[in-house]
């Protein structure tokens, strides 16, 4: 590594000027924040007025899955894009992280029993977070992150949930979130004539279905990227 030489990339004068510039930017931002704190511009009132028609009682979930559902769909598309790119960057010759875990039978028994006890609890917690998201802080992203952590724990303890990254099931899970959004948008276009305008009576169930799909998709994406960047220890022998 040439990091020691490279660290002196910028001459000290440039660094000093840059630091002064950064302080100036910080001061301008602080002044902007200070002057903004007097004036009140908030969409809270608008959200609260529309909340009864959104199908959920947690305002953040209502914004994410109903009022600004298009943003959330694009976010899931970003996740899909990252998963596809990471998969494309995989070196075809390297032993996949999935296969390596099976050789590594030397996983500590402590880790194995920890995973055996914790993974079901984490899956339950994930389901609870998904369900509670309708009325309290929680929702698809938190649930997906917990589910992905359970998958990673199971993977590290030598019991990967899937044995092959090219498995069609994990690909289906990756597409599920974006797909559910797209299908629901098109179905709503046919039924109500507008994208993402849920009929208020069905909005709660509709949001729950989309959130479930999003949870599975987020968990699959985080798990796939974990497997892509996990250190390749056994192949270094």
């Amino acid at each position: 590594m040439r990091s020691n030489e490279d660290n002196a990339g910028l001459p000290p004068v440039a660094r000093l000027l840059l630091a002064i510039g950064m302080v100036a930017i910080g001061l301008v931002l602080a002044w902007a924040l200070w002057s903004h704190s007097e004036t009140s511009s908030s969409l809270a009132a608008a959200v609260m007025t529309e909340l009864p028609r959104s199908g959920v009682s947690n305002p953040v979930t209502a914004v994410l899955l109903n009022f600004r559902a298009f943003d959330t769909m694009l976010e899931l598309a970003v996740l899909l894009l990252v998963a596809v790119t990471v998969g494309g960057l995989r070196d075809p010759r390297e032993v996949s992280a999935f296969a390596q875990v099976k050789q590594a039978a030397s996983v500590s028994p402590l880790l194995q029993s920890l995973a055996r006890d914790l993974v079901p609890i984490m899956m339950l917690t994930s389901g609870y977070l998904l369900w509670i998201g309708a009325k309290a802080p929680g929702g698809a992203f938190q649930a997906g992150a917990v589910l992905a952590a359970a998958a990673v724990l199971a993977h590290l303890s030598g019991r990967p949930w899937l044995s092959n990254p090219g498995d069609w099931r994990i690909r289906a899970l990756l597409v599920l979130g974006t797909g559910a959004f797209l299908v629901s948008a098109l179905a709503l276009l046919l039924v109500t004539g507008t994208y993402f305008r849920y009929p208020p009576a069905l909005a709660g169930a509709w949001i729950l279905i989309i959130e479930t799909a999003a949870t599975l998709s987020i968990a699959a994406m985080l798990y796939v990227t974990f497997c892509a960047v996990v250190p390749m220890m056994p192949s270094r022998r």
Partner: peptide, 11 residues
């Protein structure tokens, strides 16, 4: 509390 920035941050 304004929920819109919260949703933006979550995204």
């Amino acid at each position: 509390t304004d929920p819109v920035p919260h949703a933006l941050v979550l995204t």
